[in-house]
Design a protein around this nucleic acid. Structure first.
Lengths: 334, 334
DNA sequence: CTGAAAGCGCTTACAG
DNA sequence: CTGAAAGCGCTTACAG
């Protein structure tokens, strides 16, 4: 027998197929002795409920779909590690609910897909990943306009239901920490007016807190570059050219910050001696840098949990706009 | 109408439901004009084939399950980035076949699961992740013994169908490079007789190539530690105590190597000036280290493709034991 | 507490 | 080339 069915279990246990189904689902009103006999028969046969039949009947697949948008042409191993970490925390929150997780990396029209819920494969969908892939987000905007629901991380655009870090608070914390440690000529490095509004939020929180101290930060938008790290290297150079006396940098993300760190070293500046540096995201690679990167770390467990809760249990998206708390992970660079 | 079915499409197109199914599946022998009418009706209704009904009927789900074993109690963001990168390449190979990917991170008996194929959810299963979680691998060994098939990365134990890097060649390449660049007192840092035989293979290739030059490397097994990085820091210390004149280190993995790099710096050794260092895996964080880590880099695309091919298309596992080629990524440390 | 039966939405052999 | 019908393996309302 290739794959036993509930009829096979029924025969072995000497009951009807409907009783097998009830017993195995834990339905109330099944005699304890009967239930035990059915369980034993199922175990002996190596029977596992067919999820397709079950899902078809129940009209629910207990599965969450997670789409990660990649940069076009990007090597999969070059995906920003923040998204891998977020994927991990989403997986944990999904598994805690007994749900399965369907994962899809998408980068070009050839593999854009938003029909996981429409096909019944998943009960809800989450979209994360780079906002730099305009074609992908246009595709998902259109999908949403045509009635396909999903929830996303960050703020890739206006029509979406999103959730993101408390970026404003993060910017303020960075500012206060730098001022408290004696820095007076701080700069912000990050994309300006990016569709990913997170970056502007971080800058604005930073600038607002500095303003209370009578300080105006230099603002540097990273030049175009292959990835955030390369952009950071170039941004450090540009910043030091324009403001050689900079004594502190708040970078809009860790990958950017790690590039800035490299650029500072290349320029002969010591960190944190000459220049203090703070990133944002809390990626693992930051702890391996030399010195280890001081950063604003969102509570990733909370992020995964909140995203999954919003996707799966929050039909009217009341959780929309929830701010995930961030904390200063003080390490070597500031 | 909540979710349209093929009957709704049939009504709109003025054909029978069976014709809708044939037209949409691209079955031969459907009138071109009919097919076009059906497609139009489906589009207008936003109809998408129900995958559960389809899979139930076809007895195939076009889905691959990927299990990643984690260290017990490990934060998801602390998972060795090599496995995230491998996950990415497996996702690419899966998606290239038009298959879905079901992802499951497992760490403790509470969430061990190997029944993805048995429940019909997936057509095949791949297992990757740390070999340090003995309970998990015992669980999967038992699953395999009871008839659940899967394919894994590395060599977590004997009963498994596996695929791994050409570790022996990698060890030899490391040795030849170090000798060619003038190093004469090399050491190997890595777990000895680990269930993950990869490590011993790397060491043996390394030692064999050195032997041809009349050199015997020092061998250091990293002390127990929270993770590979911490183990690397401690191993560097232990190695320098026992062999202060060491001028080159080949570490069994990049995370270990990054710890060793930290340990060397802590001890005041310059890299690569005093000590050259080579890792294994090609993780992204290595490129961010200072100096950037020289490493043996497996061809990840080939690894993902071969694993997926073996899981999905190689029923008798003739691909078992395939060696994924590695190349020396020469960066700053050697 | 248990069984017979309907039905979830498809695919395809069979008939025409 | 197209339609009517069986059947994939479940879950549960209905009857007893």
């Amino acid at each position: 027998m290739l794959r036993p069915t509930s009829f096979d279990v029924a025969e072995r246990a000497g009951v009807s197929q409907s009783t097998v189904s009830r017993a195995l689902r834990g339905s109330p009103g099944v005699n304890a002795e009967t239930r035990a006999r059915v369980s034993a028969a199922a175990r002996e046969l190596g029977y596992v409920v067919d999820r397709h039949a079950s899902s078809l009947r129940l009209k629910s697949s207990e599965t969450l779909a997670l789409v990660t948008i990649c940069r076009p042409g990007e090597d999969r191993s070059a995906i920003n590690p923040f998204y891998f970490a977020l994927l991990g925390s989403i997986a944990a929150a999904t598994s805690a609910r007994g749900f399965n997780l369907l994962v899809s990396f998408q980068e070009s029209p050839a593999n854009f897909r938003a029909d996981f819920v429409a096909s019944g494969l998943a009960d809800a969908m989450i979209v994360i990943g780079t906002t730099s892939n305009r074609a992908a987000w246009d595709y998902f905007a259109e999908a949403q306009a045509s009635g396909l629901e999903f929830v996303c991380w960050g703020s890739p655009g206006d029509p979406f239901h999103w959730m993101r870090s408390d970026n404003d608070a993060g910017g303020r914390i960075a500012a206060e920490h730098l001022v408290a440690t004696g820095r007076r000529r701080p700069a912000f490095v990050g994309p300006q007016r990016s569709p990913q509004r997170q970056f502007d939020e971080r800058r604005d929180g930073f600038a607002a807190a500095l303003a209370a101290h009578g300080i105006t930060p230099a603002i540097v938008s990273p030049p175009a570059g292959a990835d955030r790290h390369a952009q950071g290297v170039a941004a450090a150079r540009a910043l030091l050219d324009a403001h050689p006396d900079t004594d502190a940098i708040f970078a809009a993300s860790d990958m950017l910050a790690l590039g800035v760190l490299q650029g500072l070293k290349d320029a002969g500046r010591s960190v944190p001696g000459d220049v203090a540096l703070i990133g944002f995201d809390g990626i693992r690679a930051g702890t391996l840098a030399d010195p280890a990167l001081t950063t604003l770390e969102p509570d990733l467990d909370a992020a995964g949990e909140a995203l999954v809760a919003m996707a799966l249990e929050d039909d009217d998206h009341r959780l929309g706009g929830t701010r995930i708390p961030v904390r200063l992970a003080r390490r070597g660079t500031a």
